[in-house]
């Protein structure tokens, strides 16, 4: 019988909504593990994040202030939770948290809390606004990109772009715009929600394909599974997807991780054109919300990330089942007002 590794793991991204965070599927991967016996602490920002109320998956949830409160206040809350409920590992699953957690690595280390994240340099060089430089550095085709900070720059886009273009927020959201007026509307929406800059990206015609991968920070790809979205919601989120057998896409993934020495989970978003060219449109620097498909296909990435973070050896995973699908669904959880009261008043459930 295997002695399971007993750990308390704090996981964020419990917003299992129609714009789902990766927290719940990450937890499902950990729960499926035969090597880890985890107590799961949920970290949430809103009192109605569904994961808070999923008592079969989450043992206890604490509310956090948004990272925009500043690192000091944010880490104060994390350490307060840690003193109440000892944390071995934190898996942050939201883009907006990563900067803070990476910068706080030493503070976390002092308190013996592990993370498994890319370096600040790795995080920043793949920022949407830096995609051109990233493409040149790693010899990957990328669509033309421009970061803009004001309406005045929209009039100049004609010089560098052909419509349609994508108007993207620095963390999330993307809108297609067919003329400067539509860019203006999208700019206002995106900047109001995610701040500046707003990224203008040349639209590339083709099929979007994605890869979930895990890098060990030494240049090795510990796990990688490619997927194509089969059904996309009006928010552009995958509602179902299927694993692919695409050797070129895997070669790009392995090369990128080798060259960048990426550490942690990641998602590559690529467009495959009709001519068979691949354009990198975005790198998400964390595990994506469709991670449970990789678990279902044979690569338990949350388990592997946990073991790597705890200094355990993890064998490189190269096999996965092609044609494995995920289909999301909505489900009504029945909750109690008393629980809602607790999370509101005590910031803990």
């Amino acid at each position: 019988m295997i002695n399971k590794l007993k750990l308390t793991i704090a996981v964020s991204g419990l917003n299992n909504t129609d714009n789902p965070g990766p927290g719940i599927p990450v937890i499902r991967g950990i729960r499926d593990s035969e090597l880890i016996d985890a107590r799961i602490i949920g970290l949430s920002y809103e009192n109605l994040e569904p994961g808070i109320y999923m008592s079969d998956l989450v043992d206890c949830t604490y509310m956090l202030p948004y990272p925009s409160v500043g690192m000091e206040a944010y880490m104060e809350r994390i350490l307060e939770i840690h003193h109440e409920d000892h944390i071995d590992l934190i898996i942050p699953n939201l883009d907006a948290e990563l900067h803070t957690f990476i910068k706080a690595e030493n503070i976390l280390k002092e308190h013996n809390i592990k993370t498994y994240l890319p370096s600040l340099k790795q995080l920043e060089e793949r920022n949407k606004g830096n995609l051109d430089t990233y493409g040149q550095k790693y010899d990957i085709k990328v669509p033309k990109n421009l970061s803009i900070t004001s309406h005045n720059e929209i009039g100049q886009l004609d010089n560098n772009f052909t419509y349609p273009v994508l108007v993207k927020g620095k963390f999330y959201d993307a809108y297609m715009a067919y003329n400067p007026q539509e860019v203006m509307v999208a700019f206002n929406k995106v900047s109001a929600k995610w701040g500046l800059p707003v990224i203008i990206q040349q639209f590339v015609q083709g099929t979007e394909v994605n890869v979930i991968a895990l890098g060990d920070g030494e240049g090795n790809t510990v796990a990688a599974v490619p997927m194509r979205k089969q059904y996309i919601t009006d928010k552009g989120k995958a509602w179902s997807g299927v694993t692919l057998n695409d050797p070129e896409l895997m070669e790009i993934t392995h090369r990128l991780i080798k060259q960048s020495k990426w550490k942690g989970g990641m998602e590559l978003e690529m467009i495959r054109t009709k001519n068979g060219d691949y354009y990198l449109i975005e790198i998400n620097p964390r595990i994506p919300a469709w991670v449970y498909l990789s678990v279902g296909a044979g690569q338990n990435i949350p388990e592997a990330l946990t073991l790597l973070a705890m200094g355990k050896e993890v064998k490189t995973m190269t096999e996965y089942e092609v044609g494995k699908m995920f289909i999301r669904y909505s489900f009504d959880l029945i909750g109690n007002l008393a629980d809602f009261e607790k999370i509101n008043m005590l910031r803990k459930l």
Binding site: T207, V209, R228, Q230, G241, L244, D246, R272
Partner: peptide, 11 residues
């Protein structure tokens, strides 16, 4: 056998 065709590269 049922006539279902799957392209594993494109999905």
């Amino acid at each position: 056998e049922s006539g279902f065709v799957f392209d594993a590269k494109t999905g």
